[in-house]
Structures are given as structure tokens and as C-alpha cells.
Amino acid sequence: MADLFDEVKLGALTLPNRVVMAPLTRNRADRRGVPSPLAATYYAQRASAGLIISEGIQPSVAGQGFFATPGLHTEEQTAAWRHVTDEVHAAGGRIYAQLMHAGRISHPDLLRGLPGAPRDGIPLAPSPVRPTGTAKTYDGPRQFVTPRAMTTADLAETVRDFAAAARNALRAGFDGVELHGGSGMLLHQFLAANSNVRTDAHGGSLSGRIRLVVEVTEAVADAVGADRVGLRISPHNAFNDIDERDSEELYPALVDAVAAVGMAFLHVYETLDRIGTQRLRDRWPATFILNPHASDRRTPVALGSARAVLRQDAGDLVSFGRLFISNPDLPQRLRDGLPLTDPDPATFYGGDAHGYVDYPAYPG
């Protein structure tokens, strides 16, 4: 049986351990979508992870869904990310960029007036279905609005945007890209029947609803090489007003379709039971990363949960989210049985260095 601290191949990389830093939105970019200079320190501190997957990065102006999130669609953004990847690599780490288009969960207050934004700042979506909930804007929470249904031209442009952002990611020094297909973001909105009520080729049947995800995956693989591309999904996840009534049929169809692209990995955020996870694991021919159910912050429990994933052959690598916020040296703490530090939720989103780069490594 593989151990959490064994080497493993992932696409074009060899990872020194099977501990993955999951993507974590921290909202510390400027209004131009340029990552904070502190981001280089933040990610380099966590370079002992087998793989870092960055916070969600919008591939276009239209893709921004939250205040102070970074992009990869301008030269200024790309140059700033180069400082981040240089620091991570200098510290011995490996880092993928997560490309995240928010779709309908954006807001005109975030988009209006920006060059390249949708007209009147109305977010793009599969269908004009208004989600319940609030957008996170610079001026606080705002009720979601009714989005504009994407035209054929919008769909083609979005596919091109993802591919262009992936090329920018490699120019910025990232080792690869992960496509965010879960948590109620745009690609997930196309998968779910309650947010996608289209009657054209990108809606209706399972093959229609998975079409955009497949098209984006293929375009990005063509742009940067399939062995540098991964996909994150969150089956059964109701986040951002998603309602999946046919997940048992939807996700096997999606997994089979994207497996044909030859990607480096599939990354699953586990929402329900391990049996459902195992069904997808059994269908996936390449590396499988599992973000298991939230585990207790006590070291033995977190380590036991991760090792159970490997023991059950439910994944090849295990990703951790919030534990990496407050434990920059998480792999060492897990390996040596050291106590874990609890994060402060008040500093998760926005702010300065506090709660971002000031969590220390374990003494000694």
C-alpha cells in the first residue's frame, strides 16, 4: 500500500509526497486582478506540499466572481504570478494554477465598466436563472442578479479564454493548470439541470450539459499539453444554489468523456459517501486526487483520514484545504505527529499579512 509520504507521478511531474494543498480563495489581489506581493511568500511557505494548487484565478474579466481575486488574462497579472512561481520553485515546490470562471455568481458591482466585461456588467451563465444567495463584492454582500444566457459566440470566447489563460499560466512558470468544474462555478452551472435549462447543444441531455466542460478541457489540453491539465469536480455539492438530481448518471458520463483527453489528474471534492467516490475512482485511468470530507484538526485524525484514502485505494493523493492556511509545514506535521494549529476564519478572506503569511512553522 502506498504511504502518504511516498513519491508519485502526476503528469509531467514527480511529486515527493502525496499531500496536496487544495485551492483556497484568499481575496488579496488588487482591483486589477494582480496577486499581492505577499502571495509569493504565502505559497513558498507551503512548498513542502507534494503539489500546490493555487487559489481560483479568473481566465477573463467576465470570470471574476468575488472581490480581490486574481486573474491570468493580462500581462501585468502574468508577470506578478511569475514572482510567485519563482519563489515556490526556489523553495523546492511545484504549483498548478486553478482556472475558475464564476459565471452567474458574479455581480455587476464587480464587472460593470471594466474593459472586456459583459455588457452592463450582467454575469454570464448557461441560462437566465437567478441563484439564491449573495455575491461577495468590494462593498459587501449583494443579492445575486439574473444572469444573461451565453450565446454561441460567448461559449466559443469562453473556451478561448480558458486556453489563453492556461498558456499564460505556463508563461508565468506554473507547472500546469487545474480547471474548476465544481462549487457552483460556471462549468458546474452547465452540468447542473437547475442552472442549465438550455435546449441547444449545450443543454438538455447529459451529453449536452457536459459539453462545455469537455470543450474547455480539450482546448486547454491542446494549448499546454494534456499531461499538465487537471479537472476538479464536486459531485452532489449544492454550493451556490446547485441542485443535481442525476449525479449518479452525470458524473460517470463526464469522467468517461474527459478521460479520453488524457489529462494528468481528476480532483474530487468529496461531498457524500466514499462509495460514490470509489465509483468515479474506478472509472478514472490516471492520477486521482481526493479532497475527503472535512476531518478533525487533531493530527492523528487528519493523518488517519488521509491514510484511509490510500488504504482504500480511493485516491492516489490527498488534498487538504484549511489545514494548510494555519500549518504551512503541514506535511512535516502529519509525518512527525506534531500538533496542528487552528486557523482564524476572520482572516480567511481579504486583509493583509495577518492570518496569511504569519502562521509559523512548528518550532524546531
Rank of each mutant, 00 (worst) to 15 (best):
A102S: 14
G103Y: 05
G103D: 10
G103P: 07
R104Y: 05
I105R: 01
S106E: 08
H107A: 11
H107F: 05
H107Q: 05
H107V: 11
H107Y: 07
P108T: 06
D109A: 14
D109W: 00
D109H: 08
L110F: 10
L110I: 12
L110S: 07
L111C: 03
R112H: 02
G113H: 08
G113V: 01
L114G: 03
A117T: 01
A117Q: 03
R119L: 11
D120N: 12
D120Q: 10
G121S: 03
G121K: 01
I122H: 03
I122A: 02
P123K: 04
L124I: 09
S127I: 05
S127M: 08
P128T: 15
R130P: 03
P131A: 13
G133H: 00
T134I: 11
A135T: 05
T137R: 12
T137M: 12
Y138W: 14
D139R: 14
G140K: 03
G140P: 06
G140R: 04
P141M: 08
P141L: 08
R142W: 08
Q143C: 04
V145M: 12
T146E: 15
P147G: 04
P147Q: 11
P147C: 07
A149L: 11
A149F: 09
T151W: 15
A153K: 14
D154H: 08
D154C: 08
L155I: 15
E157R: 15
E157Q: 15
E157P: 02
T158L: 14
F162W: 10
A165M: 01
A166T: 06
R167Q: 12
R167F: 00
N168E: 04
